[in-house]
Nucleic acid binder design. Structure first.
Length: 212
DNA sequence: TCATTAACCTTGC
DNA sequence: GCAAGGTTAATGA
């Protein structure tokens, strides 16, 4: 996006946006809800998840600052195919769908950026689907840890800059929390990672990659 | 601040 | 994967 169009876009957003603040555990949108707009995450982390069977959930992806949530309602369906839950305090900006669609028609650069975003997301989604289907659990968890580190980076102590419960890890990797716990223990014994509470530090990425 | 409760973690089977 | 027991976090008085 060029400077000018970004500036115009931001000004337009300021005129149309509504800021929303969510506490930990609060939901931005519910699967099946009518789509009236989309969210831009301003701060905090959001998990995007989907019901899987009757009571299981699968975490599709994590959205952080600057990411879009709810854009998949843009297609021919008029309801959200996913739910989104705040993992911590989140501020998000809600853009009216009509305004968003109008902007897409007018702002070519923005349209282009969005297309790139969709392409990247599709690529990641396809690779995750393949992994869930063919990779052993250990490989999936190793891959998930590497992905999370790439996406969220590390805090000042070297731990991955996202706090996930074992439950969330399990939902993200398509397994149960007991399995997550046991495999994390194996990784610790292998000296591949270090765990402090819910924080995880990757110590030996090459070792992790050997399971992928 | 403390007690109660709920959610989450860990472990053995 | 299930269930039990322990731990931590959240809530309300």
């Amino acid at each position: 996006m060029c400077r000018q169009s970004l500036k115009e876009w931001k000004q337009a957003i300021d005129a149309n946006r509504k800021m929303f603040y969510f506490k930990k555990g609060e939901m931005l949108c519910y699967e099946g809800d009518e789509v009236n707009g989309i969210f831009f995450v301003y701060s905090g982390t959001v998990k995007v998840h989907k019901k899987w069977g009757t009571d299981k959930e699968l975490i599709v992806r994590f959205a952080k600052k600057g990411d879009i949530v709810g854009h998949r309602g843009l297609g021919t369906t008029t309801t959200f195919p996913i739910s989104a839950t705040a993992l911590g305090p989140v501020s998000a900006c809600y853009i009216d769908l009509q305004f968003f669609l109008t902007t897409l028609k007018i702002n070519q650069d923005f349209l282009f950026q969005l297309m790139i975003f969709f392409a990247d997301e599709l690529k990641e989604s396809e690779s995750r689907m393949r992994n869930l289907a063919h990779m052993p659990v250990k490989g999936r968890i190793a891959q998930a840890l590497i992905n999370l580190k790439e996406k969220f980076g590390c805090d000042k102590n070297g731990y991955i800059d996202i706090t996930l419960s074992r439950q969330d890890m399990a939902s993200y990797t398509g397994t149960t929390y007991e399995t997550v716990f046991r495999i994390l223990t194996e990784f610790i014994e292998d000296n591949a990672i270090e765990v402090s509470g819910r924080n995880i530090m990757l110590k030996d990425i090459r070792k992790l990659l050997s399971f992928v």
